[in-house]
Amino acid sequence: MTSPSPSPSVLVVGSGIAGLACARVLHDSGVAVRVVDRGRVVGGRLATKRVDDRPVDIGARYFTVPDSSLPGEYGFAAVVEDWVARGLARPWTSTFDVVAPDGSRERKEGPMRFAAPAGTRSLAVDLADRLRADGVTLELEHEVSGVSDQGEVSGIRYDAVVLAMPDPQARRLVAPGSSVALALQGPEEWLPTLAVVATWPERLWPAELHGAFVNGSATLAFVADDGDRRGDGAAVLVAHTTPECARQYLEEPSAAIAPVVEALGAFLGTAERPSQASVHRWSFALPATQHDSNHLLRGAIGVCGDAWGERSAVSTAWSSGASLGGAIAATLV
């Protein structure tokens, strides 16, 4: 038996925007931080796949800068302003269609939605590259199987371990019945979705259709014009299904393509089928309810993400990670 080796540092598990925000604040506060992720790429639900050699967003639909965004360099407004200035993000649209259950449509004005020309994952890559340039260790395809209440992971004792991921995934890593586990939501409290990417030879919808919330559909929840979102005009739509539809096809997501394509045809008012379609499964896409606080910190374990805040959003994930990083740094520095 060997005792855990001491390590005055913080381990961040998860390289989505919450984990990267937390790592940034910790590093800038003088705390040694290590980031690991089981995936092959950074980004988490800032997910982008390539279809016909162009990026298509299959995770986060867009992001906004809420009025409640914290001021200063760690506020999300400052982050987005920097992305826009460097051409990594751009204002997309402030109007979406809203489809009523009876099929009627209304175009509604809302906050400015931002998009990333190279896909939202490019924003996570930017954050990760900056951390690496500053000497922060970031390891991909690194599986963490468990975290002790004392912050021990694989024989290393950390001052704190941050779980930057959906609650159900975080619960699997902590001790059952622990105060952290009891504070987290279970799988039944999170909503799944499927993201179906459909490509047509040419655009079959008007240019002013940036995206649409679909109410009353058993299949569609949101449809985004990805060509409009990217700014290249490609005839690509991304359809996010309702949780009920996703649950029906979670074990075999490919079986959902046909009914989603049919629903998209009805939505567009056309019988022309897409030239190709693919699907991505998100088992824990959205929390059914939000936590009252903007992060969790119990002893040596912290949890952050888009469930910790007023509403599930990219800005919430950033703010949650940044606030947790600040809270941990305050106890260590």
Rank of each mutant, 00 (worst) to 15 (best):
M1I: 11
L296T: 09
T270Y: 12
E143P: 08
R281K: 14
R54C: 03
G110P: 07
D167N: 05
A277G: 06
F284W: 14
V236F: 04
V333R: 14
L163P: 01
A32I: 11
A263R: 02
L88T: 02
P192F: 05
A307D: 02
S7N: 15
W92E: 02
T270W: 09
V161G: 01
V98H: 11
S5P: 00
A322M: 10
V35G: 09
S178M: 10
E272P: 00
L324F: 09
V33R: 04
V84S: 05
V41A: 13
D53M: 06
G325K: 00
Y249C: 08
F267K: 03
G59N: 09
N215Q: 11
A218L: 14
R229D: 01
R311H: 11
S283G: 06
V98I: 09
D232Q: 10
V333M: 14
P101T: 12
Q185T: 07
F63G: 00
L173Q: 10
A183S: 15
D97F: 09
V79F: 00
L324P: 01
I328H: 01
V125L: 10
V180G: 07
W190L: 03
A85Y: 09
V238N: 05
H210C: 04
A100M: 13
E252S: 14
V10K: 04
F96H: 12
H280D: 02
A100H: 15
A224R: 08
D134Q: 15
G233M: 06
R130H: 14
A218C: 03
C22N: 08
G87N: 12
W318M: 04
P206M: 07
V197N: 02
G151H: 02
V161S: 01
H142L: 00
V197H: 03
P176Q: 13
S283M: 12
A288M: 06
A263N: 03
P166C: 08
L11C: 10
R105C: 05
F284N: 00
E251C: 06
C245G: 01
V261M: 10
G72H: 07
S5G: 11
S320N: 07
S29P: 12
R230I: 11
T48H: 13
G186W: 08
T64V: 14
W308M: 13
E272Q: 15
S68G: 05
